[in-house]
């Protein structure tokens, strides 16, 4: 059952642009977690986890189950892995028309 229904087909394409376009796969340097990430600028980061990646991350698994305040912090190892991928040029830095 759909809830908020867009009236225009173009809206679905917008959703795709903002949520998945330009996301680059990043393998954690310390564990088996694999996420997708995007950098619109040096200070911007977008990270999409999957259930498999979440389960593979010992740092996030060590924390209390979803809902505890300590899950509100990023995994420092994944942050470092994304920084490394930026330095090596695997993740391009820069936005495209706002996405």
């Amino acid at each position: 059952m759909a809830s908020f229904v867009p009236k225009s087909a173009e809206t679905l394409e917008e959703e795709r642009l903002y949520t998945t376009a330009r996301m680059v796969e990043v393998q954690c340097l310390d564990c088996l977690a694999k996420v997708t990430a995007k950098k619109n600028s040096d200070h911007h980061t977008s990270i999409q986890w999957s259930a498999e990646a979440r389960a593979a991350c010992p740092e996030l698994c060590r924390r209390t189950p979803t809902g505890g305040r300590d899950t509100h912090q990023a995994c420092p190892r994944m942050t470092a892995s994304i920084d490394a991928a930026v330095r090596s040029g695997e993740i391009p830095v820069g936005a495209e028309d706002g996405y």
Binding site: M1, H44, T45, W49, A51, A74
Partner: peptide, 29 residues
């Protein structure tokens, strides 16, 4: 909004991306 959609969807129809962990930092510079 993708996250919020899970509450308006039958439990059987919740898609993984609605609940998968997502992190975002805005560049406020």
């Amino acid at each position: 909004r993708r996250w919020y959609e899970q509450f308006y969807t039958d439990v059987a129809d919740i898609k993984p991306e609605m609940t998968d962990r997502f992190e975002f930092e805005v560049d406020t510079t």
